[in-house]
């Protein structure tokens, strides 16, 4: 049985066509980097908004977070790729993928940023305001730099999710790793086994170092007895 899935010639075919896979791998990498950039920008903006004292920005951020966290990424992608053209908006599949994965992950990152800001003692805000810093200066010079250390682990975990989620590009012919591997596998030679295996290994190579680093870093923080954003969220949940 197993031999039929993993016969040598199937592997051979795969390795002779490695430039194809490499290009796909680079496409995935590129999509991930661009989407991450977008997600970070959105995450910080909406994270700040949900930490605001004013109701309106908080409400807007809430709607953004709840909407994107509670609908499947796939539907968001299909909507943008298949439905928006009827409204005259035609985006290339790669752009669609970056946009959707970025906006989707941005919702999660904004929650991480919000929790990070929530973990900074009130006195830090007061010290900044008492010196005459504006709200934006307080955030960029004093509060956000202090959150970086504590939000890094959850941020990296979101980055790992983002990398894996770029595989939705395969559904709209995005030319990414998942798409090319799938194409190759179904292209008459039925080499599903090697194709998906190599594909998985490549994703693993990207994600494993990141998540390992995040776990180690978090353990280090715990030893230093710094409150992590997860703990802040937990206490918030208990309080409410």
């Amino acid at each position: 049985m197993i031999e039929q899935i993993f016969t040598p010639w199937r592997w051979q075919n795969l390795f002779t066509e490695w430039p194809l896979l490499l290009r796909a791998f680079l496409t995935t990498l590129e999509a991930a980097v661009l989407a991450l950039l977008l997600a970070l920008i959105l995450g910080v903006i909406f994270g700040l908004m949900s930490s605001s004292h004013h109701r309106l920005p908080r409400a807007v951020a809430r709607v953004y977070v709840e909407f994107f966290q509670n609908t499947p990424l796939m539907i968001q992608l299909f909507f943008v790729f298949f439905a928006l053209p009827y409204a005259g908006i035609n985006l290339p599949s790669f752009t669609c993928g970056v946009l959707c994965v970025g906006v989707y992950t941005g919702a999660y990152i904004s929650e991480v940023v919000r929790a990070g800001i929530g973990s900074i003692p009130r006195g830090q805000f007061e010290a900044a305001y008492s010196q005459g810093f504006t709200y934006l200066q307080t955030m960029t010079l004093i509060i956000l730099p202090q959150t970086v250390k504590i939000i890094l682990p959850p941020l990296v975990n979101q980055c790992v999710n983002l990398i894996k989620n770029t595989s939705v590009l395969a559904m709209i012919a995005g030319g990414d790793l998942m798409y090319v591997a799938n194409n190759w596998a179904t292209n008459g030679n039925a080499s599903y086994g090697p194709a998906y295996l190599i594909c998985g290994v490549l994703y693993f190579c990207l994600c494993f170092p990141l998540s390992t680093w995040a776990r180690r870093y978090e353990e280090k923080l715990k030893r230093q007895d710094i409150r992590t954003p997860e703990e802040v969220l937990e206490t918030e949940a208990m309080a409410s």
């Binding site: 010290a127 005459g132 730099p145 202090q146």
Partner: peptide
């Protein structure tokens, strides 16, 4: 308030509130 506080008033807190980073 920001402008006036910036130029005229400083504050020392019970918990010091130095910037730890």
């Amino acid at each position: 308030k920001t402008q006036i506080v910036r130029s005229s008033i400083a504050m020392v807190f019970q918990q010091f509130n130095l910037y730890p980073h």
